[in-house]
Nucleic acid binder design. Sequence first.
DNA 1: CTGTTAGCGCGTTCAC
DNA 2: GTGAACGCGCTAACAG
Lengths: 336, 336
Amino acid sequence: MQKSQVTIKHIAQELGIAISTVSRALQNHPRIGLKTKEQVFEVAKRLNYVPNPAAILLRKNKTYTVGVVFPHLQEEFFSQAITGIEDVISEKGYNVVISQSRDKLARENRAIKSFISSRVDGVIASISAETTQYYSFKELENYGIPLVFFDRVPKDVAVNKVRGNILEAAFEATSFLANKGITKIAILNGPSNLEISNERLEGYWKALKSLGLPIVQHYIKSTDLSKEDTFKKMEELMALQEKPEAVLCFNDYVALYAMQSCRQNGIVPNSDIHFVSFANLPITAYLDNPPLASVEQFAYKMGEQAALLLLKIIDAKPAEKLMPEEIIIDTELVVH
Amino acid sequence: MQKSQVTIKHIAQELGIAISTVSRALQNHPRIGLKTKEQVFEVAKRLNYVPNPAAILLRKNKTYTVGVVFPHLQEEFFSQAITGIEDVISEKGYNVVISQSRDKLARENRAIKSFISSRVDGVIASISAETTQYYSFKELENYGIPLVFFDRVPKDVAVNKVRGNILEAAFEATSFLANKGITKIAILNGPSNLEISNERLEGYWKALKSLGLPIVQHYIKSTDLSKEDTFKKMEELMALQEKPEAVLCFNDYVALYAMQSCRQNGIVPNSDIHFVSFANLPITAYLDNPPLASVEQFAYKMGEQAALLLLKIIDAKPAEKLMPEEIIIDTELVVH
DNA sequence: CTGTTAGCGCGTTCAC
DNA sequence: GTGAACGCGCTAACAG
């Protein structure tokens, strides 16, 4: 039992050499005897030596841990992103601590506080639907903990962000519909406190303008992402005199709710009305009638990029502060 | 910046008292002056003191961290479970490190290895679809790290497990169908290396026997959970002379694939053929034609129980070894 | 090339 | 009731 109690001290004794020599050998220090090194490694393996992270941590004042706060884990967009983060992070010998805010500000704050007290080396965050102020995040900076926002980023400029090119994507998606001869295009957007909602709207506007189509205020709705609200807003759209022929949805979940709402009201999705959405989630693979098209955001790649950016900041920390960076990942409209 | 650099030393200096006094005051040590204590707390708060976990860890040889290895995060069953685990664990001041095996043995082993080297205080695991040997897990025990298996548990008796009452659930689900007058019931089971697959089969058998229905070998299929294989097996079922009238599916995902397969072949789910499955996932809320019924397994509660059991073992560790425990959570058949 | 020494921040004897 | 001193395991000067 407790083999893990083996320390460099033991292996030093075993070999009758100094502790520091063992330490250096283990780190492949350049000026160390080859035979000594080999011996050390041999004994270390035989004794099943595992370095005690606590000691290293204490000495280096570094935890080799990064915190991630995301709204949900079960949304495939986020879990894919986490996989990307994990893959990059763990390759560099870091660990990931994941927290879910479940779109609640209180849980988000609690997670950040826990990150501070466990002294993570950095944080990746996608803000909750309730987050409009960034007190907790400022606190992170007070403690000198680097922070990268992911996808759901604040409007603030002076922060590190990784996000999709939503404006462009919304533009493309809208154009896609128009090119199919559809002119009455509605948008079922997300909560307005999320910048990515605004971007969708802007892309939608720009597309309509560039295509010479009118902007109809009644065609612009936003939902709090719940099933109930989405149903309500979709019904409002379908109750209009001039019914839309297509709806651009905030994400696949919203699209699915909207389609469900339609069917309950005797409207046939993909025939009476078309849908295009964001995320391109595998969930659509389970459906017979997926949205016409969905914007692939490459969540995995976004996660990788966020992790790389964070690691870069962490490694550069002792040097002077680097300027906040913004990485924008191109999207791709996938036609189903 | 770097407020976190505040240590008990600083606060001792500030007050002109000894470090050890501060340490004791912070721990509410009984024999310490009340006014001293108050002063210490006051200064601690003012200086924004946060204890350095590394130091405590080094001293106590405890990380206050538990590791979780699950096959996937995006399966709602698992993410709900994680939420349950987190809620219990974090309330006790512990942290959770989550890893995904993605049903690969290699990733599972890597995660365990990482848990060992980061010296987690305990592990909760749901084995991958590939896991048939438990070498890595034995390794955990060698290091004295407590382990609780979750849902996908090994057949071995001498381990801690938390799982649903699958046998009972399968029995109930099968009976439910029979009580609707359906006698030709097939089962589309999971991989046979998972004990929970065997339990489903057993429950199915028992129900058929107790109802006096014949056991038809052709009606028993198992899938590796992929879409392709599930499609294939479903088609085999529907190609039978004597087509089944209902199918008991391993979980909701399998059911959805199976239903999709049917529709592609012109068979109408919930009309030509009925489905019952396990998990009762929110994903079914997105569907117009969910399975007839699904077994609710109370993933959140299962997670809570697993966490509580693990903490119990962790806390009891110094004492003599406790017997492995098996906690079985009752399920509930939810009719949609 | 290697040994000696001094902490990293905290808890804990052991003294007074 | 409080302080001094030591050590957890490891790294990093500073000597040789």
